[in-house]
Design a protein around this nucleic acid. Structure first.
Lengths: 250, 250
DNA sequence: CGCCCTTTTGATTCCGGTCAATTCCTGTGG
DNA sequence: CCACAGGAATTGACCGGAATCAAAAGGGCG
């Protein structure tokens, strides 16, 4: 098995302290009330944040940059389970352990860490904090739902299109039409369970159809959402939920 | 768009009351302490439990049978987001609404419903109940993780194999080697984002390889887990996490 | 028995992975 | 300032695998 593909850097002490500049990119922080326990962190691209099966001692929140939870298959392939953007909270483990690995995927990603024990204590005392943690868990589940829906598409072009629309909704808060991709094609491929080449092909396909506009390779402008969705938006599908005649016994 | 494929029955009042026989299949119930608020329900195959975008007024727990959360694509395809087996809790919405549809997929599925307001009140009063709800949410997230990992496989045979191993771990509590599939090939196909034919082909492939044994079409015996996994177990991958030379600057 | 649903199997087409080569982009050093 | 190097991205050729269309076999229930 070779490792050249995902080119992870060497394992390191989980915490990597470096002086942190004042926060740019102010994202609303549901965990702000625990600022006293917060611990600022900064990672270079590919730096491990935690490893699978390690004790889940901290909760994390992305401040800027991007990170990913992922697993490594025995064939060397990396699968990204969860793409973490500014504002996202992650690191809820299962049974006190992390199920997957986590690493930064862009240089200079800054993350805030909250000691788990502290979080639990504060949540037990203050129901508002408990609610905030709950909300963060719900948001994490929503990300997983979104990925499952994206992976459920049949063709690569649909997957990439759905991914772009998904990103447009998450980056820049609302549903802006301009996306600055902070990560590589390989990251996208590992997220969508496609090969890098297919991701690239799908993007040029979408460009040729007039669905998107590519400026450089990291700058995507959405031109025609209908074409991107290929008529396959799940909201439409839900609207179409007029169920025809009962086919079975009733 | 045609609807013959998933053959859902007509929309109905969400609640369908029918006399409920004494519970078979006693699964440990983390929400047992709320028995006073529990509401027993029973559904035929294909019966809707709730619709997407409907208010999330209840939390549900499968007692016996099986259900699924799913979405309907505009091409008529159904995608199952979450497969619900005895013991599974579902119906945590997002923002007070359900994001997906839910329906029973086997006849006579019995489910317990807990009024959401009641759950919240009890959780606020008793931290043990809050913890139980939290645990149920974590279990739901784990199911989503599992599905994402399954969908991340490249070939259909790997997907089906991973699905069988996943099922073996969830049915019958432990990791028994005999699986009684309570659902159709079509349900499996909609869960794995494959066609029915491919699911069937993959199963016969696995059988011919000596990985499984098929008795009838609903009875699967796992003979050789290594062959099924195809050397693609994520636990192995994690063990292989010895990261080679740093490729980047350090 | 006979109907309908489920499952399996076959033939064909198309899509995505793989291998391979070229181009693009960025940062470095002469 | 330009040349160079290395990684990132695109494009092409080829092949294997999954969807699709089609048909047949199995199974449960009236």
């Amino acid at each position: 098995m070779s490792w050249d593909r995902s080119s992870m850097r060497a394992a390191e002490p989980i915490w990597r302290h470096q002086p942190v500049p004042p926060r740019q990119n102010p994202v609303p922080d549901p965990l702000a009330s625990m600022a006293s326990a917060a611990r600022p962190l900064r990672y270079g691209r590919g730096r491990m944040i935690y490893a699978a099966d390690s004790p889940a001692r901290y909760l994390y929140r992305v401040v800027s940059g991007a990170a990913a939870r992922f697993l490594l298959r025995s064939d060397g392939r990396r699968q990204i389970i969860d793409l973490l953007l500014p504002g996202d909270v992650f690191g809820f483990g299962a049974g006190g352990k992390h199920r997957f690995n986590a690493a930064a995927i862009v240089d200079g990603t800054s993350i805030t860490g909250y000691p788990r024990a502290r979080v639990n204590a504060l949540a037990a005392a203050d129901p508002r904090i408990a609610a905030a943690v709950n909300e963060a868990m719900a948001a994490a589940a929503a990300r997983l739902h979104d990925l499952i829906v994206i992976l459920g598409h049949t063709t690569a072009e649909e997957k990439v299109g759905a991914f772009l629309l998904h990103l447009a909704g998450r980056l820049s808060g609302g549903s802006a039409d301009v996306i600055i991709l902070p990560f590589t094609r390989e990251d996208i491929a590992d997220y969508l369970a496609l090969s890098v080449e297919t991701v690239s092909r799908s993007l040029t396909l979408l460009r040729r159809r007039g669905a998107i506009r590519l400026v450089g390779s990291r700058h995507v402008k959405i031109l025609n959402r209908a074409v991107i969705a290929g008529g396959d938006d799940d909201r439409e599908a839900v609207d179409n939920l007029r169920i025809p005649a009962c086919s079975g016994r009733d």
